[in-house]
Amino acid sequence: MLQHRKVRLILLLMLVLAFTAAGIRAQETHYVGFVPPALTSPFHVAMVEGAQARADELGWTLEVQAPASEGDFAAFVTTVEQLLEKGVEAISINPIGTDSAITAVTSANERGVPILAHNFITPFSEGSVETYIGYDQWGGAAALAAYTCELIAGKHGSTPAETTGKVYILEGIDSIFSHRRTQGFNAGLEANCPNVEVVGSQSAEWLRTRGSEVAAIALQQNPDIDVFYGNSDEMAIGAALAAEQLGLVINQDFFAVGIDGNQPTLDLLSQGQFSATLGVDPFRMGVAVIDAMAAVFAGEEVPEITLTPSVVVTPDNLAAYLAGDLWTEPVAGAPETDNGLPTVP
């Protein structure tokens, strides 16, 4: 009887020891949080996949939580605070209203938990963020515009500098994102094909269906539009569908270009049903976020702005893009503000 008790006690002690050891091991692996504005777009899903893949490689525990819908700023802040409460050692957030997440940032600061921001390089007015990771929307849009100029010149058998042409812009809902992408694109046109005219710029609310509606009407006003540019691919795809419905042929009568480079867009691109997109490789951006966290844990210096690359993806370089050959390592960059000026002077 007594013997048994002793054995049991020893077994128990061993169990406790084992758990403690496991606990210590877990300490070494890091438990981190990742908060997209919502998981309602493939862009954010891809970024989560990238972050998850890298976290798995490192043996970390990544917890992803998001509000049910984008734009629910209150739920966003609550989600961040819940993760902090659960004891994440670092957290990366993707706010979509410029200063809406300050409360979340200061909460993290108070607890001494490192906080990062991803897909977002506009510093908050308060609070301290380890690093802002994202791409330069203005610069990317300008690069896309430069390629657009080439497309127009090609269609008209001219050079970018000399060609005339008509561009129609489909904007997202008023925000820093739509502003930077519209202004950057305009600047790119101005710099590369100054004789091309922007005949209209209307909101299509980030939606394919609205893009289609707006573009159809735009074609009533200007039947000879050369390019539809969407602040997001979805709106440009909608525009392409509308133009096709009116009897126009894509990549021949007109072009459709946009920003995001999500999988549905890439599919259309490979089928010749889209012209060009600004690929920012959200998967690898997600990887970069975890790498930045690792740097913070290791006590390394991280730049205020971690700039990830963006490339104009066309049918010609699509394969290379998909293979990751066009990806370049993130570099220190300049912050982006809604000031009507280029991000990188």
Partner: peptide, 16 residues
Amino acid sequence: LGVSLVITNGAGINIQ
């Protein structure tokens, strides 16, 4: 809406 979101992962399913 939730089911649509979950089964598409937030992306549109392209068709021909």
